[in-house]
Design a protein around this nucleic acid. Sequence first.
DNA 1: TTACGTTAGGCGAACGTTCGTCCGAACGTT
DNA 2: AACGTTCGGACGAACGTTCGCCTAACGTAA
Lengths: 338, 338
Amino acid sequence: MVSKVTLKQVAARASVSYQTVSKVLNKQTQVSKDTEQRILQAVHELGYRPNQIARNMRAKRSFMIGYSWVQTSPDQVNHILDQFLSSMVQEAEAAGYHLLPFPFREGNGLVDAYRELIDTGRVDGFVLSSVNYNDPRIHFLLERKFPFVTFGRSNPELDFPSVDVDGFDGLCQAMQYLFLQGHRRIAAIGWPEESRVGNERMRGYFESMQNAGLEVLPEWIERGEGTFDFGREAASRLLSLPSNERPSAIVTLNDTQAIGALHAAREHGMEVGREIAIFGFDDAPMSQYLFPALTTIRQPIHEAGRKCVEILVSLLKGEEPAERHILVKPKLIVRASA
Amino acid sequence: MVSKVTLKQVAARASVSYQTVSKVLNKQTQVSKDTEQRILQAVHELGYRPNQIARNMRAKRSFMIGYSWVQTSPDQVNHILDQFLSSMVQEAEAAGYHLLPFPFREGNGLVDAYRELIDTGRVDGFVLSSVNYNDPRIHFLLERKFPFVTFGRSNPELDFPSVDVDGFDGLCQAMQYLFLQGHRRIAAIGWPEESRVGNERMRGYFESMQNAGLEVLPEWIERGEGTFDFGREAASRLLSLPSNERPSAIVTLNDTQAIGALHAAREHGMEVGREIAIFGFDDAPMSQYLFPALTTIRQPIHEAGRKCVEILVSLLKGEEPAERHILVKPKLIVRASA
DNA sequence: TTACGTTAGGCGAACGTTCGTCCGAACGTT
DNA sequence: AACGTTCGGACGAACGTTCGCCTAACGTAA
């Protein structure tokens, strides 16, 4: 391992003081063309690169952004992480920052992990994802006045910068599409009432139905986990309704539920896309390869990741970010299932 | 933002020199029970946590491990990243390290990103994934004598620590299973010859066939990208062979190819699992929900991630790692497609 | 009494930066 | 010739640690 090149070594070679080298590199002071050349050449010859740790120490900043995500179970994979992380890392690097991923701990230890990173000076800010109502991390960070941005919204009365995908709009798009296809009896498979994201999306369903002057039967609303099993059970119940109450289309809140619904339809001997329409949400990687290929809503994850970091970085620079609340619109992906 | 607590503040409160506080916290020197108590109490009262940047500066180490992954296309998602990253982060944290993810750049800039992180002292070591033959990163890091571990193997003549999933064994397991099911005519959809990983897996196919005393028709070997489209095309060709040459089973090198093959079989009006067996590799998240559910090979990603970091950390401590080359065995997942 | 070992803890230095101040020389002005 | 002004660059200091050396006080044995 080659020993690291420092300012002093460059200075020695250029016959100046090491502080002068620093100034030249940071374009701080006027210096004669001649010595500037000597210094730049020495820098080049030695391959000098400033030591970031020393720099950070001096600046009393870490130039790191903390990020933690919930580790999903092996069969419920986080297919978004790749894109989200990539976009954040890229945007962060462009601003001279790096990402610090740290283990997500459930329960009380959760906030401790954040506190630890703050107190040891390892990060300058956080990006929070998987936020929900009354997220303890939000309260903690607000109280400590520590910079952060959330991906996803939380309690409306709390004020903090956030980026979110407009789930309401996503469901409106889905509903609009279904209306155009002639559907009037549309059921919804949702998430539990505690889910902020779920409620937002469901609002798109309810308002769309109302605006279209359509009645929503209570039997049409299913709420449960975003799993294959729940999707299958719920869809099975819906498809077992008497023919005059049976929906002609089902919207779900994620692709996994939708796939469960696909299976239920098959079990009921129904052809999806013709006899029953099924709508997903997420555009999971494999959804395009299902039978039939899933019609769904794609979230602009790349953009969301970029925006999160963009806002956080301007916060860290002490600027007021251009936008404090960003809502990105998801995109309708029409395939064969609806 | 509360101002950070430093050693000096603790020292002032405990009426000792700040260096003594440091020593007590690092259990370096003997100190009277009395002052030790005073110091610990002051630490507790002020909530002192050592500043990591200063610590790293002093130690001339960053306690960071660099990791970069190839950003996949939006529809070819890296479903492994979540698990791999989580396991590395967790193992790293246990050893006092953190992960530094950085953007992967194709082409010549690739090595530059690594060089930059080394020269600026940001990382102490790397974990490399997606390695192939003659990987420029490996040559570069070997030459610089910079610590690293690869996930995946490369040229056998190069000596460096690595962790890999035994793809050879994976295919042997698949073949063994197919033999037990009575299959004798087994085709393979592989990757291009340049793929080290692909060749390793294919070797499992060839050796299994040979050991079973079975002939391999040249038409049975397809090589191409690990995509849905190639899987479909290749399978379509295989299924169009005259009935005396047509395989009764097809092994593929990843689930995406296998899904393509599933579609091809459907297009040929064949029932997968009964008329034709199709084998995947990877156990992608959705594979369990396909029609029919995909029989495949699951890689122990979590274990691999842990091992990578474990080896690297012991390297960084200057120890000789217990094992320099780890080969973890994948697991057969029997479902309905074979 | 002197000599010496042990213990508790102070102190200076260093890691590699950046920042602010200071100083000498060159220059132009009255 | 004496005086400001400007420019080029040196220099000390500090960020928060850790490490090694030093010393004062005490106890013990000759």
